[in-house]
């Protein structure tokens, strides 16, 4: 392998060779280690740990409180009576006084009626994790409501109920179905936050979008509208919000991803905040 006159050199050269290779290996290891430390910073993963659950909770509480109170106020027959009384009073007395009086009476009536109505929702809120109680409440409300805008409020409540269910299911057990619902709620909440609500008017528009997701949480292609809100500006705002919300939160378990490949999401841009 080597010439005889090279024999005295062989050992020294061999030592140099080993040193060179060890140096390269060390350089390689060091560079690999520095890369490892930097990577998590670039990726920025767990931004979505606790925030979404809080927003969902808020939605639930408001949904249960507001409509019930509003409906209770609206359905009262008594304000009409007050107005009649006021009319009578106007006939009897000078103009200025009844004007002052009637608002007072209205407020008084409201105050009187409020505690009575408030007593009902409170226990239901406490038991909101139980789906039955929520359903009973929803049924009550459905029976009461007749106007079209009230119906949409009920729909919003149903969605809130789904979110609440998802939350309770996720907390009760880490079953995959609960996980899927939880992350669907997370995706919805993240998009909802990015919607420019001013473009959606004062009503309560409902939109439905179909989204193709990639495993990285990015939207595959562009979201396609399934149901329009009737306001083109609002539709555009929601579509922009979907694209802006990338990457969308996905469950860490890749087995569940097949559930997220094609998503149908409903949006209520004016609800929730």
């Amino acid at each position: 392998m080597i010439r005889s006159h090279e024999n005295p050199l062989a050992l020294k050269a061999g030592a140099f060779t080993v040193i060179i290779h060890l140096a390269l290996l060390a350089a390689l290891l060091i560079s690999f280690n520095t890369q490892e430390h930097q990577l998590p910073n670039i990726a920025q993963v767990e931004l979505w740990d606790s925030l979404p659950t809080r927003t969902v909770k808020l939605v639930v509480v408001k949904e249960i409180f507001k409509p019930v109170l509003q409906e209770a106020l609206k359905e009262e027959p008594k304000p009409e009576l007050i107005i009649e009384k006021a009319d009578i009073e106007i006939k009897k007395k000078p103009v200025q006084k009844p004007l002052e009086k009637t608002p007072h009476k209205l407020i008084e009536k409201n105050i009187v009626e409020k505690p009575a109505e408030k007593a009902k929702p409170n226990p239901t809120i406490e038991k909101k994790k139980q789906a039955d109680a929520l359903k009973a409440l929803q049924d009550d409300v459905n029976a009461d409501t007749s106007a079209s805008d009230k119906k949409s409020a009920a729909k919003a409540k149903a969605d809130a109920k789904v979110a609440a269910d998802a939350q309770s299911a996720a907390s009760a057990s880490a079953a995959s179905a609960g996980e899927i619902d939880k992350y669907k709620a997370l995706i919805q909440a993240k998009i909802q936050r990015n919607v420019n609500k001013q473009l959606c008017g004062t009503g309560n528009p409902v939109l439905e979008f179909g989204i193709g997701l990639m495993p990285t949480g990015e939207v595959n292609g562009s979201p396609h509208m399934i149901k329009s809100s009737g306001l083109p500006a609002c539709d555009d705002a929601v579509e922009r919000a979907i694209l802006q919300s990338q990457p969308l939160p996905l469950p860490p378990d890749t087995k569940l991803f097949s559930q997220f490949r094609e998503l149908r999401l409903k949006f209520h841009p004016n609800d929730g905040n």
Partner: peptide, 8 residues
């Protein structure tokens, strides 16, 4: 081997 020969 190549490094060995190179040094030699």
């Amino acid at each position: 081997f190549s490094w060995w020969y190179i040094f030699i």
